[in-house]
Write a protein that binds this DNA or RNA. Structure first.
Length: 837
RNA sequence: GGGCGAGUGGCGGAAUGGCAUACGCGGCAGACUUAAAAUCUGCUGGCCGCAAGGUCGUGAGGGUUCAAGUCCCUCCUCGCCCACCA
């Protein structure tokens, strides 16, 4: 055991290296299963190690939650604040290629580097719970959980239209974004993408859409996040209406949420991919329709976007559908503004009350019928786009619906259509099956085999009991070839010996060669932290019962509709099959903002504006770095990094450190001075303010309070020992290293003893009696302007304060007994007076 | 086009409807120094004024209130997310 350091100058390196070793060696931040203390599970999204080392932006997102976790520990909670590495995926593969190592080697090295960086900042982590998603002991359970989806019919192997980029291969919807020019590109490398059909594994998240919506009501997420998820799920209640095609036995079914406007329907549009296209196109229109469909299919999504939503196009099939309500013959067109993937792939055109339908009607001179009158009472024909009303009004020209409000009309006509056998109420969702396979090397192999007869078989069907260890994990075989064939055969497909296997009957079979997406390992990682070394189960049920749900979850806004929603889906499914103890994984969520480069641009190697925490820690120390990251602004906001801030924080830490020389145990007599009393008020204010600010995660203003207190202390010659010890505990979550140094010194501990660490001490309390001010000065406002002050005491009544105001010689020129119209005194806040002008 | 945010000094940002600009950065002045750096002290929203003080001021305009950065209405700008979703 080492002796406590004692230096007269502030040397961050000596202090930090010294305590870091002792903390982690003795694992002082241990999270204890089944502890009798109340638990708090504080989680920050696990990092994805793909660059040289941890990014200062990551560090900002971890620092605030980590300060909070330290505070909770000092408040007597059994805290779990874990850390691990999400290391499968393309960036690691790219990193490996660039550095001429294997992804296995790259991952190992990055995990070590990242861990060192995280340790250097001094995060309070129980390293016994560290996980790595690429560890076979981990992904065995990712595969096992995947098989639960498979066994329950929620994982399917089917032809899917997928995004394809030559450089990234096949991508999920979530990995494709619109660039600034409005083109669809791969999020990863901005390469253009196109649509292709491919046999894919999908997870059927739409089956859980309703449960995921309902679950939102019980959890404490910001409205913004809830809305984004609701929007993403895109639940729409409407009706499928079936129309007969004139002179044909065919029928066309459309989905609409606005059946109330159906008396105004003047055409039908079907998607180019719709199976009816071939059946109902009349011979004289065949050539034109065929040409249109061919062009639409060849158009990449990029071109469709490029042409924008303004320019409608289409072709007439020559057929008509009969509106069962009024016998109107609606011409049927093909147009790419209708998507095969939403609703029924066919829409009914009501140009008077839908902007897109109106635009399309103009293209083919289709009649426009008004069936809704808005608030303005305008009943003139609809001739311009700006006259198209969508969601308010009263029905006209609509037979038995006339005069009804549109919402009442909607219900009435849906009842009618159902009674007449013309329609069926339907709910549709915009959320799609989650494409869950990749044609990449560096991921979890999907643990399924293809039997000779084409049927699929889970690598283990005896799962839970003894079988699991015999068959899982399906280990990722070693390979140095990470590229897919042009035909889509994944890299693993090239390893012929590995692909060849046998099924449970011993017959020859082939392994699945696609791997899982990066999202797989991170969909359940927070469960594994609870029981990271369990080899018999993904986690012990009783331990889950103790720790779950996560109390506070911190992460990036970019994960709102991806990771955050999809991992809720995993968890909710596990709950339904009895694997986990509660329906929702995360009780509370906050999204972190972004830290920009000093130039205000997003930190990126391209701009050369990346700030590395390692450099900051080297130059200014971890304590100053932590303060800078927490002080710079509120957690949820985005702002640029400013080098000056950390210099100021270094000075602040030094000021705190050097204060130790002013510490003295004051006698009762010395405590009986005005100076001591003032200092004591400041100290109690500090404790109270910091406590309430940490509770609401406003670390920036909490640090301001620490600065205010230090500015106050400068005025005195001595700092009382009792106050000093409380102060050290207040700063402990923010600047753990210097706090430990000061704590050990002030207590004269010569030997390190785990239980004596400041971080395991109780959070200081404050005395609200000391903060009650008996006498204070309040502003006096006259006709809305502050014109002076008066001194009041607690017991002053309105009448007393009024007397004081009237007696004030400065105020007399603004107010006298005779000019007062109205007098308001807000206790201990303000006096506000209306006077005659 | 839809949804969600946000507009406060030179900059990052504070402010349960109650003295707008806390705290920090930067700037200015002073102390220490042969000098500089570092450190310390003071000042620091605009305008008028020697000063006391006055006056304007939280994107723009209106409203509610004794009192509005904060609440309500109209508008402007910026950011993020979603988007021919019927």
């Amino acid at each position: 055991m080492k002796k406590t350091l004692r230096t007269s100058r502030y040397n961050h390196k000596d202090i930090e290296n010294h305590w870091r070793d002792l903390w982690y060696t003795d694992n002082i931040y241990e999270a204890v299963d089944f502890s009798s203390k109340p638990k708090k599970y504080i989680l920050a999204e696990l990092p994805y190690p793909s660059g040289k080392s941890i990014h200062v932006g990551h560090a900002m997102r971890y620092t605030v939650p980590e300060i909070y976790s330290r505070y909770l520990r000092m408040q007597g909670y059994n805290v779990l604040f874990p850390m691990g590495w999400d290391a499968f995926g393309l960036p690691t593969e790219m990193y490996a290629l660039k550095n001429n190592v294997t992804p296995q080697e790259a991952t190992q090295k990055l995990a070590v580097d990242y861990k060192k960086a995280v340790m250097d900042i001094g995060y309070a982590i129980d390293w016994k719970r560290e996980i790595n998603t690429t560890d076979p002991g981990y992904y065995k359970w990712t595969q096992w959980l995947f098989l639960k989806f498979f066994e329950n019919g929620l994982a399917e192997y089917k032809e899917m239209p997928v995004w394809y980029s030559p450089s990234c291969g096949i991508l999920a919807d979530e990995e494709v974004i619109n660039n600034t020019a409005g083109e669809k590109v791969a999020e990863r490398d901005a390469s253009p993408v196109e649509r292709k059909m491919f046999k894919q594994w999908v997870l059927k998240i739409p089956a859980y859409a309703d449960k995921l919506l309902a679950g939102l009501e019980k959890i404490d997420f910001p409205e913004q996040i809830k809305n984004a998820q609701i929007n993403w799920i895109g639940k729409r209640v409407g009706i499928n209406i079936t129309y007969n095609v004139k002179n044909s036995s065919e029928k066309v079914t459309v989905f609409t949420t606005r059946p109330d406007t159906n008396f105004g329907a003047t055409f039908i549009v079907i998607a180019p991919e719709h199976p009816l296209v071939a059946k109902i196109t009349t011979p004289e229109n065949r050539e034109k329709v065929h040409e249109y469909v061919r062009k639409a299919k060849n158009k990449s999504e990029l071109e469709r976007m490029g042409e924008g939503t303004k320019n409608k196009s289409g072709a007439f099939t020559g057929s008509y559908a009969i509106n069962g309500l009024n016998g109107y013959a609606m011409p049927i067109y093909v147009s790419d503004y209708v998507l095969m993937t939403f609703g029924t792939g066919a829409v009914v055109g009501v140009p008077g009350h839908d902007a897109r339908d109106f635009e399309f009607s103009q293209l083919f001179s289709i009649p426009v019928i008004r069936v809704v009158v808005g608030k303005d009472g305008d009943i003139s024909p609809i001739e311009r786009l700006d006259q198209v009303q969508e969601d308010v009004g009263t029905m006209v020209n609509s037979d038995f619906l006339n005069g009804l409000d549109i919402h009442t009309a909607t219900e009435k006509i849906m009842d009618y259509l159902e009674q007449q056998g013309m329609g069926t109420r339907t709910t549709v969702f915009s959320i799609r099956d989650w494409v869950f396979s990749r044609q990449r090397y560096w991921g979890e192999p999907i643990p399924v085999i293809h039997k000779q007869d084409g049927r699929l078989e889970a690598v283990t069907t005896t799962a839970d009991k003894v079988g699991v260890d015999r068959y899982l994990p399906v280990e990722l075989p070693f390979s140095t070839d990470y590229t897919a064939e042009k035909d889509g055969t994944p890299p693993l497909g090239k390893l012929k010996d590995w692909v060849k296997t046998t099924d449970l009957q011993g017959m020859p079979a082939e392994r699945e060669t696609q791997t899982m997406p990066t999202w797989a390992g991170s969909s359940w990682y927070f469960i594994r932290y609870i029981d990271p070394r369990n080899s018999r189960a993904f986690a012990d049920f009783d331990k889950m019962k103790y720790w779950l749900p996560v109390d506070r979850y911190f992460g990036g806004a970019e994960h709102t509709t991806v990771h955050l929603l999809y991992s809720r889906f995993w968890f909710r499914f596990f709950y339904d099959i009895g694997l986990v103890p509660c329906p929702e994984p995360y009780q509370w969520r906050m999204n972190g903002g972004l830290l920009l480069g000093p130039d205000g641009k997003k930190m990126s190697k391209r701009y050369g504006n990346v700030v590395e925490p390692g450099v900051l820690i080297e130059n200014y120390g971890a304590d100053a770095t932590r303060l800078a990251l927490a002080f710079i602004g509120p957690y949820t906001d985005t702002y640029p990094w400013n080098e000056n801030t950390i210099v100021a924080m270094w000075r602040l830490v030094r000021t705190m450190y050097l204060l130790k020389d002013k510490v003295k145990t004051l006698t009762e007599e010395e405590k009986n001075t005005a100076a001591y009393k003032r200092a004591n008020v400041s100290y109690n204010k500090l404790t109270k303010a910091v406590t309430s600010m940490i509770e609401v995660l406003k670390m920036n203003t909490a640090i301001s309070e620490i600065m205010i207190f230090l500015n106050e202390l400068k005025k005195y010659d001595y700092v009382d020992t009792h106050m000093w010890r409380g102060f050290i505990k207040v700063i402990a979550p923010f600047t753990p290293f210097v706090a430990e140094e000061l704590w050990q010194t002030t207590n004269n501990y010569t030997m390190w003893e785990k239980n004596n660490s400041v971080h395991l001490q109780a959070w200081p309390t404050f005395d609200s009696k000391i903060l009650e001010e008996n006498e204070l000065t309040i502003p006096v406002m006259i006709n809305g302007k502050v014109r002076g002050q008066v001194n009041v005491v607690n017991t002053d009544t309105d009448v007393k304060v009024k007397e004081k105001v009237l007696a004030d010689e400065k105020l007399v020129k603004y107010v006298t007994k005779d000019t007062i119209l109205k007098f308001i005194y807000i206790q201990k806040k303000i006096a506000s007076i209306q006077v005659k002008m």
